[in-house]
């Protein structure tokens, strides 16, 4: 069996085990969607009136989708840190199994959780007036892009989880970096009105590219008067979104696996 084939086989077993965990702790799934639902309601109805009403709500949902999938990487952080603390990773590392499997299994099972969260968020979006206005194929591409981006974020989470000294630290470390990253983007407002440096970050932020692509693919227009991001990343949003997701994977998969080889329970 090649190393990759063994990694996929063993990763599947780990993913099965993680999903059994999710099924027996439905509050996990609950936690995965309660926060984005709250964001939808807060932004749609607290800020929404000032920002464009119904048109803003339609604009907002793509931002929420991307935030939802990205924030699910916090589960990767906590899940791995938890396994580490409880000595389960020691057991796994003493088994003749692939060094990739525990991480691949975790990111895969979190991808499944992301799918469920996206489904619930889509229903929630439909309730506040969001619609898919593009073709079915475009919608499928939009969902696939969301999942690819979420998967990439999950691998960043894997490295954070393996580096966290305790579950408490993991809980905040897993979310801390995501707030600025998702807010300095076109998720909630058009990045055009941000001050210079923030605007530059927002324009090159992969979040913006993914959000932009998803909006384009779903056919959700920005409300009138909202300045859209500009520049190359925005003009080539889908390309940039896919390339940056793949780049994140290319960097963080080897880093996380290297960390896993050396990691030790406290």
């Amino acid at each position: 069996m090649t190393a990759l084939a063994q990694g996929v086989r063993d990763g599947g077993i780990i993913a099965w085990r993680n999903l059994l965990n999710v099924r027996r702790n439905v509050d996990w799934l609950f936690a995965a969607v309660i926060q984005p639902i709250m964001f939808v309601l807060l932004f749609a109805y607290v800020f929404g009136g000032a920002l464009g009403g119904g048109a803003y709500r339609e604009f907002l949902i793509a931002g929420i989708f991307v935030q939802t999938t990205a924030f699910n990487s916090a589960f990767t952080v906590i899940g791995l840190c938890n396994d580490l603390q409880k000595g389960i990773i020691d057991r796994f590392r003493s088994l003749p199994m692939s060094r990739l499997a525990v991480l691949l299994g975790r990111t895969t099972s979190d991808l499944v959780v992301s799918m469920m969260a996206l489904l619930i968020m889509s229903l929630c979006g439909l309730l506040v007036g969001w619609r898919i206005r593009g073709s079915v194929l475009d919608a499928v591409v939009a969902y696939l892009l969301l999942l690819l981006f979420g998967f990439a974020m999950s691998w960043i989470g894997a490295l954070i989880g393996l580096s966290s000294p305790s579950v408490e630290v993991a809980q905040s470390a897993g979310l801390m970096w995501l707030f600025p990253l998702s807010f300095i983007s076109s998720a909630f407002v058009g990045a055009g009105t941000m001050p210079g440096p923030l605007k530059a970050i927002a324009e090159w932020n992969p979040f913006t590219a993914v959000i932009q692509s998803v909006r384009d693919l779903f056919g959700n227009a920005a409300p009138p008067g909202m300045a859209p991001p500009q520049g190359w990343p925005s003009d080539n949003a889908l390309l940039y979104a896919v390339v940056s997701s793949l780049a994140i994977l290319a960097i963080f998969i080897p880093l996380s696996v290297a960390k896993y080889r050396r990691v030790a329970s406290k």
Binding site: I13, R17, L20, K86, G87, I88, D90, R91, F92, M97
Partner: peptide
């Protein structure tokens, strides 16, 4: 076979599932 200082069992899996998983991971 290693049995560490803290019982490394997955609390949300049944006893049977825990052992089945380890068996599968041994190939």
């Amino acid at each position: 076979g290693l049995s560490g200082q803290y019982a490394a069992v997955d609390e949300n899996l049944t006893g049977f599932e825990n052992l089945y998983m380890v068996g599968r991971l041994y190939g």
